[in-house]
Design a binder for these strands. Sequence first.
DNA 1: CTGGGGATGGGGCCC
DNA 2: TGGGCCCCATCCCCA
Length: 589
Amino acid sequence: MELPNHAKQLLLQLNQQRAKGFLCDVIIVVENALFRAHKNILAASSIYFKSLVLHDNLINLDTEMVNPSVFRQVLDFIYTGKLLSSSEQSSEQNFSALLTAASYLQLHDLAALCRKKLKRSGGKPLPGKPSTPGPLSRLRLNNQRLSSSTPTGTNNHYPPTPSEADQPQPQPDEGLRDKLSDDEMFVGSTGKNGNGGNGNSNGNLSSGGSAGEPDLGLDLSKKSPPSAGTATDALSPHSNSQESPQSASVSTTNSASLDDSSTTLPGADTCGSDPMELNSSKAEENHPDGPPPQKKSRQGARKNEWPKREASGLKSEDHDRPLVNGVIVGPKDGRSSSGVGGGSGSSFASDQSFQCKEEEEGGENGQDHSEESGQSDGESTGGGGRGGGKGGGHQSANYVYRQEGFEPAFGDNLYVCIPCGKGFPSSEQLNAHVETHTEDELYIKEEGGTFVKEEDEEEAEDLSAPVGPSNFGAETRPFKCTVCSKSYKDPATLRQHEKSHWLTRPFPCNICGKMFTQRGTMTRHMRSHLGLKPFACEECGMRFTRQYRLTEHMRVHSGEKPYECQLCGGKFTQQRNLISHLRMHTSPS
DNA sequence: CTGGGGATGGGGCCC
DNA sequence: TGGGCCCCATCCCCA
């Protein structure tokens, strides 16, 4: 009793789901393209993926080993077992690239297939891949890069080493992998065919995998304190679990493709996309409640950050959508394939309101209406506190990178430098160009009137205030900001600060498109998307995205109230609450 | 219902 | 790059 097409149907369904982004639980970043997929599927196809998806929801692949178009084929292969063969795709070069990618991703069957193809065509198996230490080492590096943020160096090796506890059970030959060139590994797999390849990995997966891996997968903890005993134990940094590393990687990962992705993503097309998706993704549509996890209520209340990002050009939606749909292709590859447009087109089409806005903004730059809102919104809504005034436009103005894809106005030069209005065909060129602007120039622009305070207005206000911190300890802080006159101890810090006066926000969130002035902030922001809460309270198990929060939280348990109101003697566990309390004393009411 | 305190999330910024 | 701290915005609970 066996259904003949069961497996096939199942795959078909999964592939359709992938196209729609339905139940996709992992995002793979390849250069400036994002692909959504199902962890289970990836894990079942490659042990390498298995090790990655175990701890991360966002995976950044080494662009030297795989590019978006190749990865798309890889993904298609994983979900269909077929290698599509369009004219270009069946080129020797493509197979070579596929082989490299397959080797890198440990997709043995695919690698074997590519080899066969290459053999037939007489081409060399894999350019530079095999025995040369290069590739392998690169793989490792890559891995490490992925998990870079965390220490557990040894564990980060690419093919999971046998010793890694939480790794899927290393296959018998697993240990050898380190010593083998990719080629060798593949030879084995190919030779043995299914067995060595998938079979093998699968076998492991199923067996060792399930057993050996606690469902850490969801536990995004990065460095949860060793303690906790329970689940966290496994996660503890020392337990050579990779989790920490990996989850951490997420952040790094993200940062990796930032620049491009930001710009590109928006325009990107979605490969499997299905327009419906957009619609279906409630989050997006109702922005307000959107995607963000966390507390619903709060979220909703919270300034609709999600919705607005658009301003950045990336409009959150763009980003989101794409993701939802499944694949976002950056300009370089996919987008170019405007053709793909179908994909993007369709997908975007729906959101497009945004894009349109974008364009407008582009046009006037001022636009930003909504702008990033995230903050501004919050702020503004909040009572106009910060946002306020100029607020309106800030962000958009700040974004140097333009959304591409929707700006016919700029022709091929989709990346426009807002300060000077020049357009560039690629984000790299724009970046290079931006560098040519001297800080002074930028400031001048700002002062010229175009400048819209990006960050907190409040902040700005402070800055503008003559009495500001700027004047403090000028002696010990010889580096002074020419714009707000704040002073700093070292030039690097000053430079960092000065960037806050620029019109740019060079660090976009790959997920929502929100732009940030500092990479670290963006990375931190990413954690909220990914649910990474590495810091766990040993007492109650509550987890936090920041160490500081945990420290703060611990006072709840200890009862420590270090902050005292000088006016009424009230004590508080948190300084911010004391501040809030002080307002009560000072406010008219 | 309202105000105040406790607690948490997110972003900016400095070190 | 990450940690730490500040600020804002909220939510929840309680009086």
